[in-house]
């Protein structure tokens, strides 16, 4: 029997669970496509562990033909670091939203970055808490209207949007890979994720990739306004690019770590 044309999904996608559970126009599908293509390109499907967090990102629990674990509130990273320490031959991917990674679970992210754990962290930033109905998140842009900021986010009252990759780049030891991609540039995002996975496989240190993503449901936007907000306003506040690469010369304060302590 001749087989009709089939969708060009990455091989690691689980076709039985498609169409996936994300809303129409959700950026999660594009980020997971980039991740799937990166896993395919490296040929590591048999030894990859995928961990998803609470929030919309947990809807990816049956997305891949990968061993998957779901934990809550940013603890995906420490759980996967435990797996990595017990079975160093595995490749672990921690997949979180901005609410789980920055608001509720920032302590796990900061600790993991300062330990330079061998884990690839992907944070999908869509500037709102999407699963609970679009409330203000740490990454909500100044003046952006959400469910809990009907007059726009007031930076005097609620602070400025959080810059996750800049935070990780500032505290991570040498060998870290930190980048920010966008679903508006899928090829670049796939390259960043692939470099992040390679960084972990080569044992150099933490890999942190933030992906700017869209949420048409909670932004209440049509397709044209979704792209405009993502490409013009979000990319202006959150600059896309690589912040740290393992090849670069580390800053002086990170290079030498002498032993300290009072002498008895």
């Amino acid at each position: 029997m001749a087989i009709a044309a089939q969708p060009q999904m990455p091989r690691v996608w689980r076709a039985e669970s498609k169409p996936h559970k994300f809303c129409p126009g959700c950026g999660h599908g594009i980020v997971l496509k980039a991740l799937g293509e990166a896993v395919d390109a490296l040929g590591i499907q048999e030894r990859t562990i995928f961990g998803c967090d609470i929030g919309c990102s947990l809807l990816s629990w049956d997305f891949f033909n990968l061993d998957t674990i779901q934990t809550h509130h940013g603890r995906t990273t420490p759980v996967l670091v435990g797996i990595k320490r017990a079975r160093p031959e595995l490749v672990v991917v921690s997949y979180m939203g901005d609410g789980g990674a920055y608001a509720i679970g920032a302590q796990h992210l900061v600790s993991s970055a300062s330990r330079n754990d061998l884990v690839t962290i992907i944070v999908v930033n869509n500037t709102v808490y999407a699963m609970t109905g679009g409330q203000m998140a740490p990454t909500t842009l100044p003046g952006q209207k959400t469910e809990t900021t009907p007059y726009g986010r007031d930076v005097e009252l609620t602070g400025r949007p959080m810059l996750g990759p800049e935070l990780v780049a500032a505290i991570a030891p040498p060998g870290a890979y930190v980048a920010r991609g966008s679903v508006a540039n899928v090829v670049q995002l796939k390259n960043y994720i692939q470099k992040g996975l390679e960084n972990q496989i080569q044992g150099r240190g933490i890999a942190f990739i933030e992906a700017l993503s869209s949420c048409p449901t909670n932004w209440r936007t049509n397709a044209a306004e979704t792209w405009r907000f993502l490409e013009k306003e979000m990319s202006a506040y959150f600059p896309v690019g690589e912040l740290r690469t393992p090849e670069e010369k580390p800053a002086a304060r990170l290079r030498e770590v002498p032993a300290h302590g009072p002498k008895p």
Partner: peptide, 13 residues
């Protein structure tokens, strides 16, 4: 279109 489709619903040959 194939690249940005979140659902892999388009394939261009």
């Amino acid at each position: 279109c194939q690249l940005v489709c979140p659902d892999a619903a388009i394939w261009i040959e």
